[in-house]
Write a protein that binds this DNA or RNA. Structure first.
Length: 681
RNA sequence: GCCGCGUUAGCUCAGCUGGUAGAGCAACCGCCUUGUAAGCGGUAGGUCGUCCGUUCAAGUCGGACACGCGGCACCA
């Protein structure tokens, strides 16, 4: 008697099928429309090939383009596969390695054929064409189960050393599958579409080339990566390309130049020249942070830029971080043109790459009692780090930056409450600045670390619980854990924000540190009269002003909330008869603390409106003969087209002053208690 | 640091196979006193990133370096 399988469909119906039956067969039995639309199958929750026979009773859901996440993942993976086949067709001797789907497409890493260098962007159109040929050939993508040794022998024979190396490291219990399309084969877990022809030949585009290390390790070979973006259809692709174009307009480097906020130049690469308008944003942000920190019980300090190398040796930075430090010899430079400027024998000092050792020095002055804890020392601390050359990026990754840094010295028992307090403060600040949604990551113990496992257990649990207690993890929150990513001295929380094109940047952080107080001999006197080591929490909310302002620019497309806008209003006249009145209006606003500029040029009002709109000035105050006579102002907020409101001068001043009030100075709802949540909307 | 690409007027960019630099916008000057996203006319502006080389001749070809861009690795 033949064994039949019971296949349960999402509508609850059950079909009895013979062994050898595939999801494709079931789809065909249901109807030709579904057979055509089906791209893959979810069998007992696992995404599988349409043509892979059932092996047991199963829950089956057929995946179509409507299941967009699954469908995109499938086609992107297939595009990568087609890319690899196309490259090997065109460039024999190229070795294949990995080619996964990404958030918007796919990539494939190749080892170029000997004698042929890495791929360049000029190669891409040719490869795209070949990919279309592979798609047009519509070869079936066939799954085959092979043994490990057979796969290795196969690839070794083909000169594919990367694939041969990789297959031998797959877990022993893993089923090893090869996918065949025509004569071409790749080691792949799958699943894939039934055939290459199921891909839309007009829904992908190869976008760029890049180097990438084999298995992500700098010590390994540099491979040549080709990136593409891939979609279900042409319309989606075009929409995506349009989004990228729009995103490019929000690039902080571009807006920084257009709005005259800052510039960079090669003589000080990695350090920002802040212009008056950019600095106005910084000042507004700093003043706001200072108020928030004061209110949260922090005490602000200022510590030296240059400190003797001895201190960095004691802190451990000299050993671990020296390559990233700027070292300054403490000697008078020679003035004899025939002799070297530096003797090389002077004592060494270093620009601080972080503030913590200096903060410990402040903590160590005098004797601290347990009654003084927690002690929260804050500094807008300017640091220098000599970053790897290729890492610099606009003002988001620089060599001189200012952190909104603070170190909380506390007892182990206070860590939880301090972490909760910090998380809430950060959440408030991020909301005030327009970021109700952000990503939180908990970086867990690395391979190489200081301290016992039980200490790490406790530290990780404390941070995890504190985030949960602050109601910032769980349903609706973007919280994840990163095994192995913590600092060697303790676990850390990372708070990430996203830039215009979707890259995420770590901004806020909180790091638990049991080591630094020990190394720099920080102690307090406990209730028992004995000396104890405090725990140190390194923490920052913005992270650095440079990066955070960069993110702010991109997030708001340069249209800052009024309280941060570098120019809050421009008075623009229509006729010169209004000039005197315009000066009066500008004077009144300026006296009320509004950052206002006047445009009395002999230009058409159309011209002025266009210019100041492009400059993203939030409020345009238009004054003609009528307004001058009636002592009113026509208020034209940015982005409201021709709509405007005519106000009396006093009303206007009151209105702008109210709107330009920083969020922390506005009338606020009653304070929440310790167990009050800040739930995200 | 690694791979690829780039660097021409204040900005955005053109300049084919080497023959000595061009546009639009901005700037400046003049006219227009103007009502909600570009009025009109004119003028000026560049040792083509730096250095070295090939050549009768280099923005253009080759090399080195610097910086930038996209990734990789590293990180706030």
């Amino acid at each position: 008697m033949t064994q039949h399988f019971q296949i349960r469909l999402p509508d609850g119906s059950v079909r009895e099928v013979e062994p050898g039956t595939t999801p494709a067969d079931v789809a065909a039995a249901i109807g030709p429309g579904l057979a055509k639309a089906a791209m893959a199958a979810r069998v007992n929750g696992e995404l599988r090939d349409l043509n892979r026979p059932f092996e047991e009773d199963a829950e089956l859901a057929l995946v179509t383009a409507r299941d967009e996440a699954d469908a995109l993942e499938l086609v992107r993976h297939d595009y990568a596969h087609v890319l690899a086949e196309a490259v090997q067709n065109l460039f024999p001797g190229t070795q294949i390695t990995f080619g996964p789907a990404t958030d918007d497409g796919f990539y494939y890493d190749f080892a170029p054929a000997p004698g042929r260098g890495p791929f360049t962007e000029e190669d891409l159109p040719v490869i795209e064409e070949e990919m279309r040929r592979v798609i047009a050939r519509d070869d079936a993508l066939v799954r085959e189960v092979w043994t490990r040794d057979r796969v290795r022998d196969f690839f070794e024979k083909q000169g594919e050393r990367f694939k041969a190396e990789w297959v031998m490291e797959l877990p022993a219990d893993e089923t090893i599958t090869m996918y065949r399309s025509g004569n071409w084969m790749d080691l792949c877990r799958g699943p894939h579409l039934a055939s290459t022809g199921r891909l839309d030949p007009q829904a992908f585009k190869l976008t760029r080339v890049s180097g990438a290390y084999w298995r992500g390790d700098q010590k390994n070979a540099m491979l040549s990566r080709i990136y593409g973006t891939g979609w279900l259809n042409r319309k989606q692709l075009d929409a995506h390309l349009l989004r990228l174009e729009e995103a490019a307009k929000r690039d902080h480097r571009r807006i920084g130049q257009e709005m005259d906020l800052f510039h960079l130049q090669s003589e000080a690469h990695g350090s920002v020249f802040w212009h008056p308008k950019g600095w106005a944003i910084w000042r507004g942000l700093e003043a706001y942070m200072r108020r928030r920190l004061d209110a949260a019980g922090y005490r602000e300090i200022k510590t030296p830029q240059l400190m003797d190398v001895g201190l960095w040796e004691a802190s451990g930075h000299w050993g671990k971080f020296r390559e990233n430090m700027f070292v300054v010899p403490d000697e008078v430079p020679g003035t004899d043109p025939d002799r070297p400027v530096l003797s090389g024998t002077g004592d060494l000092m270093a620009l601080k790459p972080m503030n913590c050792p200096a903060h410990v020095q402040v903590f160590r002055q005098g004797i601290t009692s347990y009654r003084d804890l927690p002690l929260r020392l804050a500094e807008f601390g300017t640091c220098h780090r000599n970053e790897p050359h290729g890492a610099l990026h606009g003002i988001m990754r620089v060599r001189q930056f200012t952190q909104d840094d603070a170190h909380i010295f506390c007892t182990p028992e206070q860590v939880f409450e301090e972490t909760v307090g910090f998380a809430r403060l950060l959440d408030t600040v991020y909301r005030d600045l327009g970021f109700p949604a952000y990503t939180i990551k908990l970086a867990l113990r690395p391979e190489q670390r200081a301290g016992s496992d039980s200490l790490w257990d406790a530290a990780e649990t404390t941070l995890r619980d504190a985030v949960a207690f602050a109601k910032l993890s769980g349903e609706g929150f973007n919280f994840s854990e990163l095994p192995g990513e913590g600092a060697f001295y303790g676990p850390k929380l990372e708070f990430h924000l996203t830039d215009a094109i979707g890259r995420t940047w770590q901004c806020g952080t909180l790091q638990l540190d049991y080591v630094m107080p020990e190394r720099l001999d920080a102690s307090y006197v406990g209730a028992d009269g004995e000396r104890h080591r405090p725990v140190m929490l390194h923490r920052a909310i913005l992270g650095t002003f440079e990066r955070f302002i960069g993110i702010l620019i991109e997030h708001h497309s340069g249209r800052f909330p009024l309280w941060l806008a570098p120019v809050q209003a421009v008075v623009a006249t229509i006729v010169s008869e209004a000039d005197d009145y315009a000066r009066e209006v500008a004077g009144a606003l300026s006296a009320a603390g509004i950052r206002v500029e006047s445009d009395l040029r002999n230009e058409k009002i159309n011209y002025k409106i266009r210019e100041h709109s492009l400059a993203k000035v939030p409020n345009l105050l238009v004054l003609g003969k009528r307004e001058a006579e009636e002592h009113t102002v026509a208020l034209r907020p940015l982005g409201t087209d021709a709509r405007q409101e005519v106000l009396g001068l006093d009303a206007l001043v009151a209105r702008l002053v109210a709107e330009a009030t920083p969020p922390d100075l506005r009338a606020s709802p009653p304070q929440q208690g310790l167990d009050g949540g800040n739930r995200r909307g």
